[in-house]
Each structure stands twice: as structure tokens, then as C-alpha cells.
Design a protein around this nucleic acid. Structure first.
Lengths: 241, 241
DNA sequence: TCGTTGATTGACGAAGCGTCAATGTTTGAC
DNA sequence: GTCAAACATTGACGCTTCGTCAATCAACGA
């Protein structure tokens, strides 16, 4: 007798297999090169079996997305837990993001596909909810830091602005940056270290907000090195991306 | 006898017809709802004729993109020509962008499609070049303002940073913002005026760069109203988007 | 008037998504 | 050990869509 538990394990393993295969194909051959028949062939199961795990191609892509988004949220939590100045913790989020990109270079590409295609209701409700939950979770981590900063007197936010204003600025810059560097014709930016500029712009904006200590009063380059080493065990300097 | 000139005009008119129809379909039924047969039916020409104007579906989308990108570049030029403080001219670019979005709400969606799909060589070389030219042109407009600001003593940029650093910050925020607000699940940001935050963040970053006059020393809200009225003949306040 | 040149058409091949009847496998009752 | 019911798997098939191309049509000049 095959117990339900073992069956469950097998199903889970197969789902992983499908996801890993799909991700590899997406990376290798692009969105147009990803197709269900090829996945079926690669995993040596029939197409019908794949459709027992995912309701559609878009649903599969959404699953890929949730997968890495969760990893990202986890890294954000780790970053926010860094024991230091509130502005260092913001910096830690930026570092988490950069390292995340390094580890999952295709995440944003997958996310873009969803924004285009998911509009129709092709995705499992359950998966969509999960997606929203993870996003909200990340926002909450960021809001937490802003709250702490205000409580500690490191930051003041005008009354007519929501608390999330500065973090929205970081968020938009990060999203915009990764969208720009992954867009097709990069010629207009040739020979420019966009990564270094991004870091600098984070700092300029936070300076503008008066988030203490200002970049002139603190060596955030050193903080960055410390954070990437102690929190994520990687080397990642603000200078060279 | 049909002169070559008239024939040329007719071709151009039909190209416009195809583009307009395609754009409408894209807006109404999304990317998946855009298909060549439907366009052919709508314009009352056969599919083959469409393929005499565009080498592929992606090529058609690229043409749509070039179309609006050019309009955007034009508005950027107008904005940069505003006769005022250099920082007001930067603001004018932001306003140009916001008005552009209002006028061409689907532009970024179309652009995203290209980033995904164009990777393969499905687009006419000529169209790709045009794409790059327009982008470079916009960058140059922005670089011009930064150059003027430095010359006027309104702004200093550290030696180790390229001149385009602050404008890259504006660029990333704009791209990120429009990507976020057009992405599917907006729930995490419910009830927040992201537009107002964007404007504020532009100002915070420029303040951080010390681009004079600082936002505390100048009523940029008034400038914004003036610019949108005199340059673009529209009302567009920084507060409410 | 008529042949040539070029534009236009739409049926067709190819490729991909998602379905479902048919087939295979596991389970638990006896 | 047997067997029927429940469940899992398969892949051929229907459907949609892209892009092509042989056949058809229209304009022009001789």
C-alpha cells in the first residue's frame, strides 16, 4: 500500500521538477521558447499530468513567480532584522534586493510576463492570493523600518504624506532600475555603472528626507560590506554592483 | 494614372489605420486579444496586406511603441525648453511624463511586451534603430538640463559620478512607478495616493543632490501648475496626479 | 486592347494550448 | 488471491493563431 503521505511527497517532488524545468527553459530559450509540450517531454510525463498541477501555462508561470517572491520576502525579513541604525536597515533591504537579483536573475522577467498575461482569470485564485500576501508582507517589513525610524527620531515625515513615502521611492527606483537594465536596447546607457548610480540615488533621496545619519555623516559603504557579509554571507559592494 | 505620390499617401494612411486599430484592440482586449486576423477583419484588408507593412506581430507592436515614444520625446523637448530655473525644467520633464501617460495610457504596456518578445530578431532593423535613436534623444535632453544646471551653479555632481546620475534617479522612479501602478495586484498599495508620493520623492532626491533652489526655498507646486498650463495647455497638479 | 508589373487575397501549413476518452494503476473489501 | 471502484496518466485531437505563397486582381503604358 502506498500511503497518502508518500504519494503527497511524490506529487510535491514532481511539482518541483516541473517548476525547475520550466524555469530552466525560460532562462535558456525565453518566453516564446517555453511550451508545455517541451516541458512534458523533458520531465518524461505527459502534458495532461502537468495540467494536474497547474491550471494553465500562466498558472505555471505564476507559481514560478510566487516561488522566488517568497525567497525575496524572506531575504527582506532577514535584512530588516539587522541590528543597527534604522537607515542601515533600509540599506540592508537594498542589499537584500541586489543579492536576490544575483541569485534569481530571471525573477523580474517572469513577473513581467504575469503582468501582461494574467489579466484574464487564468490563474488559480489560491495562487493569486498567495501572490498578494507575499507582496503585502514585503511592504509590511518596509513599513516596520519606517515606523522604527520615526520612533527613534531618525526620520520625520510630513503629515500630508503616508509613512510609506520614502520606501515607495526605494521601491520604484529598484523596480525601474531592474526594468531598465533588463530592457532590450541598453545603448543609451552604454559604459555607465548604473548600479553605482542606483546606490547613490537611494542615499540622495534618503538624505533629502533627512533620514539620519545622513550619508555625509556615516560610512554606508562600510555598513554595506558588513551587512552583505554578516547577513547574507556574500560580498556585495555599493560601488560596483 | 495613379501617381507615385498619391500611392505613397494611401500606403501611409493605411499604415496609420492598422496602427490605430491595433492600438485600440490592445487597449480593449489586452495583449492576448490582439491578433492579426482580427485586425485584418477590422480594417477590411486581408492579413497578407498587413504583412506588407509589418514583418511580424512583434514588428507591429514595435511600430506602436515607436509611435508613442516619439510623441514622448517631443514632449520632453518642449518641457526642457521651458524658460525658468534648471530645476523647474526638470520638474517640467516630470510633468511632461505625467501628461504623456494621461494621453497615452497604454504606452508602457506596449513597451513591456517588446522587452519580453523582441529578444528574437523579429523586428525590422530599421525600426529597432529608430527605437534606440528616440531613447538616446530623450537621454540627451535630460543630460542637457543637468549640464545647464552645473553651468549655472545650481548643482554639483561628485567627480566619481556620471552627470546623468540624478536624471537616472528620476527615470527609474518614473519607470518603476508606472510599472507598479499598472501591475495586476495593487492591493498592497490600496488607498494611497502614489502619484503625490512620486512627486514628493522626485523633490526629496533632488534636494538630496542639493539641486537649487531646494524644495523648501521655492514653490514648485506653483511652478508645476504654471508649466502644465503654459507648456502643455493642461491642468496637472503635483498633489493629486 | 493587352501584356507586364505589382498589389491583394485567403486557404493552408506549422505550432502551441488545453481537453478528454481511453488506458493503466492502486486500493481496500471479501 | 480476486475484483471492482477510484484514481492517475496518456497522447491524439480540436481549436486558435501566426506567417506564407500560389492564385487572382488592378493599374499602367505601349
Amino acid at each position: 500500500m502506498v500511503t497518502a503521505a508518500r504519494r503527497q511527497r511524490e506529487l510535491l517532488a514532481r511539482e518541483r521538477l516541473i517548476l525547475d524545468t520550466a524555469r530552466r527553459m525560460l532562462a535558456e530559450r525565453g518566453y516564446l521558447g517555453l511550451n508545455m509540450d517541451r516541458i512534458a517531454e523533458a520531465i518524461e510525463y505527459s502534458k495532461g499530468t502537468i495540467y494536474q498541477h497547474f491550471s494553465s501555462k500562466e498558472d505555471l508561470i505564476a507559481a514560478l513567480c510566487n516561488d522566488t517572491a517568497e525567497a525575496r520576502a524572506g531575504m527582506f525579513r532577514q535584512a530588516a532584522a539587522f541590528d543597527g541604525k534604522t537607515r542601515e536597515r533600509v540599506l540592508a533591504i537594498g542589499i537584500a534586493d541586489a543579492i536576490f537579483i544575483k541569485r534569481h536573475p530571471d525573477h523580474f522577467a517572469v513577473e513581467s510576463i504575469l503582468d501582461l498575461e494574467s489579466i484574464v482569470g487564468k490563474i488559480t485564485e489560491e495562487r493569486r492570493e498567495k501572490w498578494i500576501r507575499t507582496k503585502t508582507e514585503m511592504m509590511d517589513v518596509l513599513k516596520g523600518i519606517v515606523g522604527d525610524a520615526i520612533a527613534a527620531g531618525d526620520l520625520h515625515i510630513r503629515n500630508d504624506l503616508p509613512l510609506c513615502a520614502p520606501l515607495y521611492g526605494l521601491w520604484t527606483q529598484s523596480v525601474g532600475h531592474y526594468r531598465i537594465i533588463s530592457s532590450d536596447p541598453l545603448e543609451p546607457f552604454e559604459g555607465i555603472d548604473l548600479h553605482a548610480i542606483l546606490w547613490n540615488n537611494y542615499n540622495m533621496m534618503l538624505d533629502g528626507y533627512g533620514w539620519k545619519p545622513l550619508s555625509a555623516e556615516w560610512d554606508y559603504r562600510a555598513s554595506a560590506e558588513c551587512i552583505s557579509k554578516t547577513v547574507f554571507g556574500e560580498t556585495m559592494s555599493m560601488g560596483t554592483g
